Simulated scan of single mutants.
Amino acid sequence: MAVRVLSIDAAGIDLAGVALSRLEASLRKQAGDPDACVADFFDLAAGSGAGGVPSALLFTRGHDGRPLLSIAKALRQLA
């Protein structure tokens, strides 16, 4: 079984935010699910330095098991 890992570098939250927004939009389109979040497509997330913050925000799940935040909502939390 393959494990899908998302690694977010600390190079800059702005740059990571743009890349993650595009990734999430592409994944939503491919899945045909407008409510899909990045965390729905990865098994594990890691981040170095500041990259750890969006990793934690994106992969925190609610009581229903769904990710609490989309990338857009996570970036608003960081602003």
Rank of each mutant, 00 (worst) to 15 (best):
I13V: 09
D14H: 14
D14S: 14
L15Q: 15
L15C: 09
L15N: 14
L15H: 14
A16H: 02
A16M: 09
G17F: 00
G17W: 02
G17T: 05
V18H: 08
V18R: 13
A19H: 12
L20V: 10
S21F: 00
R22G: 11
R22S: 10
R22D: 12
L23Y: 01
L23F: 01
L23C: 03
L23E: 06
L23A: 08
E24K: 03
E24W: 07
E24P: 08
E24S: 07
E24N: 07
E24M: 07
A25E: 15
A25P: 08
S26P: 00
S26D: 11
S26T: 10
L27H: 06
L27K: 05
R28N: 05
R28M: 06
K29D: 10
K29L: 09
K29N: 06
Q30P: 07
Q30T: 15
Q30D: 15
A31H: 06
A31S: 15
G32R: 02
G32I: 03
D33Q: 03
D33G: 01
D33H: 01
D33N: 11
D33K: 01
D33L: 02
P34A: 14
P34Q: 07
P34T: 10
P34L: 12
P34K: 04
D35W: 04
A36V: 03
A36N: 02
A36P: 01
A36S: 10
C37L: 00
C37N: 08
C37P: 00
C37Q: 10
V38M: 06
V38L: 13
V38D: 06
A39N: 14
D40L: 01
D40P: 03
D40K: 02
D40M: 01
D40W: 01
D40H: 07
F41W: 07
F41D: 07
F42S: 03
F42E: 04
F42L: 06
F42R: 02
F42D: 04
D43F: 00
D43L: 00
L44D: 00
L44K: 04
A45S: 12
A46Y: 09
A46N: 03
G47I: 04
G47F: 05
G47K: 02
G47M: 05
S48E: 00
S48T: 06
G49C: 15
G49K: 04
G49N: 09
A50Y: 10
A50P: 00
A50K: 09
G51R: 01
G52W: 06
G52K: 02
G52Y: 05
V53W: 11
V53N: 09
V53T: 13
P54H: 04
P54S: 06
P54Y: 04
P54N: 05
P54G: 06
S55A: 15
S55R: 03
S55T: 10
A56H: 13
A56L: 14
L58C: 12
L58K: 04
L58R: 05
L58S: 10
L58I: 12
F59Y: 14
F59S: 12
T60Q: 08
T60P: 00
T60F: 01
G62Y: 12
G62W: 13
G62T: 10
G62P: 12
H63K: 11
H63S: 14
H63E: 15
D64W: 12
D64V: 12
D64G: 12
D64K: 06
D64L: 15
D64F: 14
G65L: 11
G65P: 13
G65W: 11
